[in-house]
Each structure stands twice: as C-alpha cells, then as structure tokens.
C-alpha cells in the first residue's frame, strides 16, 4: 500500500459520497446518467467476486463492501426512489456499444481463462469506458450542476492517482499489471477535456456549461 493508492481510494470514495449527497439532498438525479451508474455497479460486482474467497486485508474487504453498497444504493435511488426526476431522454448512450467490445476484449486479452479472471478483466476494461454515458449526457445537455462536476473530478482523479501508484509500485516492488495500467491510462484520458473545463470554469466559480 502507498500514499497514491490510499489517496486514490479515498478520492473514489469521496466521489461516490458526493453523488449520493447530491441525489439525496436535492431529492433529484437530474443530470446524472443512470447508465453509467449501472455500469459502475457491474464493474464492482464482476471485480469483487473474490470478496469472500480471497482475503487481502480488512481495509480491502471493507472498501469493497462500501463500494458495492454505494454503487447499488445509487442505482436504486436513480431508477426507483427518485425515478421521476431521472431525465431518461438525455441518457441515451447505447450501452451495447461499450459492452460488446469490452466483453470481446476481455476474452482476447487477459491473464488467464479462469471465470473470475476473465470477469476481473471485464471489470477493468468496463471501468475505463463506464463514464462515457455520463460525459455524453453532459455534452448533450450542455451543462452540469456544480456538485456533479465535483463528483466527476474526484472520480477522474482517483484513477490518475492509481497511475502514480503503479509507477511507484513498478519502481519499488517491480509490480506491473499491464491490463490495469493500459485501461487506467485510457480511462484518465477520457476525463482530460472535463478536467480542463473543471479547472478553467468550475474552480473559477463559474457554472460548467459547454460552448
């Protein structure tokens, strides 16, 4: 464990809490892509199958449970509790365009063909594209609530911190997880234009609105 990974996990946790706070306080999930949240729930479900079979540490187990809970509570709030505020007509990204290539790739490129390993690989590839429906929705509506931009910032920051974690682990323990690193780079690149807008607009107190 290193500081980049701890900060990354905390940034990830903060992002999920920010989203839950936004939906709970505003009693609305306007501007949130339910499809992205479904994909995140799928990412955690397929990645944490070893939750009970492969004990790493208390921290690891607790964080996996918390992440799974946050993901499913968020999906529940969007598609059930506050479903009247869910603007489904703007959440139109075709999930099959993401799932088909990700499923294909996880069978083509993985570390081994065991079911848990292929599912783990699927979750890594899926996570790198899971935010696309959300970013697509924002580009379609042309704006986003400020707390939603904070959510996206910390969500993007978490994987950027993981990149630093992988550099650190390569230097210190010669650890190299190629699938995670390549997917993490792709994932972080998808956030770049959002990061630019976040720094140039939101941090200057303006509302995030796309030209």
């Amino acid at each position: 464990m290193n500081v980049f990974r701890i900060l990354g996990d905390l940034s990830h946790l903060l992002a999920m809490f920010l989203l839950l706070v936004k939906i709970w306080r505003s009693k609305s999930c306007a501007g949130i892509s339910g499809k992205s949240q479904i994909l995140f729930a799928l990412v955690f479900t397929t990645r944490y199958l070893d939750l009970f079979s492969n004990f790493i540490s208390i921290y690891n187990t607790v964080m996996k449970v918390v992440f799974l809970l946050c993901a499913y509570v968020t999906v529940y709030m969007i598609y059930w509790k506050f479903r009247k505020t869910f603007d489904i007509e703007n959440d139109t990204f075709r999930l099959e365009f993401l799932l088909v290539p990700v499923i294909g790739l996880s069978f083509l490129v993985n570390y081994s063909y065991t079911p848990t390993e292929v599912l783990w690989t699927f979750s890594i590839y899926l996570e790198s594209v899971a935010i696309l429906p959300q970013l697509f929705m924002i580009s379609k509506t042309g704006e986003a609530e400020t707390i939603t931009t904070h959510y996206l910032f910390f969500l993007g920051l978490y994987r950027a911190l993981y990149l630093a974690n992988w550099i650190w682990r390569y230097q210190t323990e010669n650890f190299y997880d190629q699938i995670s690193v390549v997917s993490g780079v792709v994932q972080t690149i998808f956030y770049c234009d959002f990061f630019y807008l976040y720094v140039t607009k939101v941090l200057k107190g303006k509302k995030l609105s796309l030209p």
Binding site: H12, I56, K64, F67, Y111, E117, W120, N165, D177
Partner: peptide, 10 residues
C-alpha cells in the same frame, strides 16, 4: 508478482 490469481487493488 503473479497477477493471474490475486489482485490486491480495489
């Protein structure tokens, strides 16, 4: 580390 079995990251 042999990655194909235990992934220790979240």
């Amino acid at each position: 580390a042999d990655l194909s079995t235990s992934h220790d990251e979240l």
